[in-house]
């Protein structure tokens, strides 16, 4: 089903989407999207939403199992507290994407902004994944508490990530393609060489990612990765006196 989002306010657009899903539509295509917020907010179920145009902030916030494909750039706060589902962005995105994300996948073709994956968490089988093809801004993985983030920096030789990577990180794992300058790292993370288990973890994810955007998997794997893990699950455990 096609929905023309032209001149629609977010509440009206999202209501139209919800109504369409409730009446049994499982495939929606939104045309002329231009900054409307909260698309897919709180949605669950086996639904696929294709967005033509640039959606506004908080795309897929609190989402629980829908698939969203954006054929353009997207803005801030994507996958805010998302619990399940998959979001694929054929472009670059803004800041604080994947805030508190606890499950599902967020695949971005291009660059990502600041504070990506902040407070991302995992619990048992809920392990969120963010993969970005381009570069990232400062505070990548800030306060990260779980999940997997992979940054590829395709087309960039160095400096693919900003400063303070993993500041306050106390769970999860980050893989950055190529080298990371130690001075860019937050003081709560350690840089390691990925082992066999790491490859077992990221290869299927990267194959899926490459499939989404038509990237050459072998080319992506032609450089090594740097693995970042937290030094402690309790970074501030020693700070207090009782």
């Amino acid at each position: 089903m096609k929905i023309d989002a032209k001149d629609m306010q977010h509440r009206q657009l999202n209501m139209t989407i919800r109504d369409a899903v409730e009446s049994g539509n499982t495939g929606l295509e939104l045309d002329n999207v231009n900054g409307q917020r909260y698309i897919g907010g709180g949605m669950d179920g086996d639904v696929k939403i294709t967005i033509n145009g640039t959606p506004g902030n908080d795309l897929g916030s609190f989402m629980n199992g829908t698939e969203i494909i954006v054929n353009a750039n997207a803005q801030d706060g994507i996958a805010n507290t998302m619990n399940d589902g998959r979001i694929i962005i054929h472009g670059s995105v803004g800041d604080i994407i994947g805030y508190g994300m606890r499950g599902g996948k967020l695949y971005i073709k291009g660059n990502v902004g600041y504070r990506v994956g902040i407070h991302m968490k995992e619990y048992e089988d809920k392990v969120p994944v963010i993969i970005a093809g381009g570069t990232a801004g400062d505070f990548f993985g800030e306060y990260m508490a779980g999940g997997i983030m992979i940054l590829l920096g395709l087309g960039s030789d160095n400096g693919v990530v900003g400063d303070y990577v993993g500041t306050g990180m106390h769970g999860g794992v980050i893989y950055i393609r190529g080298e990371v300058d130690p001075r860019d790292l937050g003081k709560e993370v350690a840089a390691l060489e990925p082992g066999e288990d790491d490859m077992k973890l990221i290869v299927p994810l990267l194959k899926e990612y490459c499939g989404c955007f038509g990237f050459d998997f072998d080319e992506v794997m032609s450089r090594g990765f740097t693995k970042l893990v937290p030094l402690s699950h309790r970074p501030y455990g020693e700070m207090y006196v009782y």
Binding site: D76, R115, H119, K121, Y123, Y143, A145, H170, Y236
Partner: peptide
């Protein structure tokens, strides 16, 4: 508590002052 907060047991539950958004 871990199950209700949906975080692994033994991890600090950090909820800093500013919402980062």
């Amino acid at each position: 508590v871990s199950k209700t907060r949906m975080i692994p047991a033994g991890t600090d539950a950090l909820s800093p002052a500013p919402h980062h958004d």
